[in-house]
């Protein structure tokens, strides 16, 4: 038992010594690793963004940015982790549209005022895709079919309550009634459309680019305000009279109450990251707008506006 007392005493003495020697000095930020919380599993889009950011930001600030995956509850588990940590700028989290959508739903676990946006890194429009050999040639035909036989066309989406769902609800309110089939796993979602089990797939182009390039699927509509240069022949929702554009965005947030200068430093660093050619290439591969980046203050209004848009889309269905 004496050894244990010894260990305690030793630890105590060490702690006291370093407390005395280090604590009073003004802490330079960042003086230790800044963790990036990814509320999704390893390997996904959010994870890729975090790991690329970490790689590019490390030499800029001279500290490491370890990536921490905290999957669960559409990102809520990760947000919980961010919000229980201290607001000292040593934890930031990836915050995506689907997590933001929870705020528009019933009983959200946090409020927009609990978090401080640092930067929006990517804004990616969503598409409807059909299989290459599908009898449906384009959006006009899809629309006609859906109106002629309501609730027969099947569209694969992420799940109810997601951004995908809101867009489908909006379309339903405009008379395009389809059966929404939720597939939580991406691989199952993609098999479902290529294998012909569903008629269309709601997805961001970057996540399925190998299928597009292989000519296994093709887009029929972009949900956005304008067409994309990469898909010149694909109409966008606004030109067709559907006023809905809920882009998938990926942003960084910290806990509210983080010192302003630290938020500014992080935001500036992320801006430099986003200007990096490697990051630009990443944006291009994901068909993300080149000027996706929004600094802290603009990100704040952007997130709030998105929540309002989603609430509006939800109200319309009733």
């Amino acid at each position: 038992m004496t050894s244990i007392k010894g260990a305690v005493a030793l630890a105590g003495a060490l702690a006291a010594a370093f407390c005395a020697s280090i604590a009073p000095a003004q802490e330079k930020y960042p003086s230790r690793p800044v963790q990036i919380i990814v509320p999704w599993g390893p390997g996904g889009g959010a994870d890729q963004l975090a790991r690329l950011t970490a790689k590019l930001a490390e030499p800029m600030l001279g500290t490491s940015f370890p990536v921490v995956n905290t999957p669960g509850a559409t990102g809520a588990t990760g947000m919980e982790k961010l919000l229980t940590d201290q607001a000292d700028g040593y934890s930031m989290a990836i915050y995506i549209a689907d997590t933001n959508a929870l705020l528009a739903g019933p009983k959200p676990r946090w409020k927009l005022s609990d978090i401080q946006p640092v930067a929006v890194m990517m804004q990616v429009p969503s598409f409807l895709f059909v299989a290459q050999n599908s009898p449906i040639k384009d959006w006009a035909q899809f629309e006609k079919e859906a109106k002629a036989k309501p609730k027969t066309l099947k569209v694969a989406t992420l799940g109810y309550g997601s951004v995908d769902d809101m867009t489908m609800q909006y379309l339903a309110s405009k008379g395009i009634q389809i059966v929404e089939v939720p597939y939580a796993k991406p691989s199952e979602r993609y098999v479902s459309v290529i294998g012909g089990h569903v008629d269309a797939l709601y997805e961001q182009a970057g996540d399925v680019r190998q299928f597009i390039n292989n000519k296994q699927i093709r887009p029929i509509i972009i949900f956005g305000k304008e067409r994309l240069p990469a898909f010149k022949d694909v109409p966008c929702s606004y030109e067709l009279g559907y006023k809905i554009a809920l882009p998938q965005f990926r942003s960084y947030v910290v806990k509210a109450g983080t010192p302003k200068d630290r938020v500014k430093l992080l935001s500036d660093t992320l801006q430099k990251v986003s200007a990096n050619p490697e990051f630009q290439k990443f944006l291009e591969e994901n068909y993300s707008a080149k000027d996706s980046f929004l600094p802290a203050d603009k990100a704040e209004t952007y997130l709030a506006a998105q929540v309002d848009d989603m609430k509006e889309a939800m109200v319309k269905k009733q």
Partner: peptide
Amino acid sequence: GVDDTYGVD
């Protein structure tokens, strides 16, 4: 916890 299909607790 949160269910996969409907997203309810």
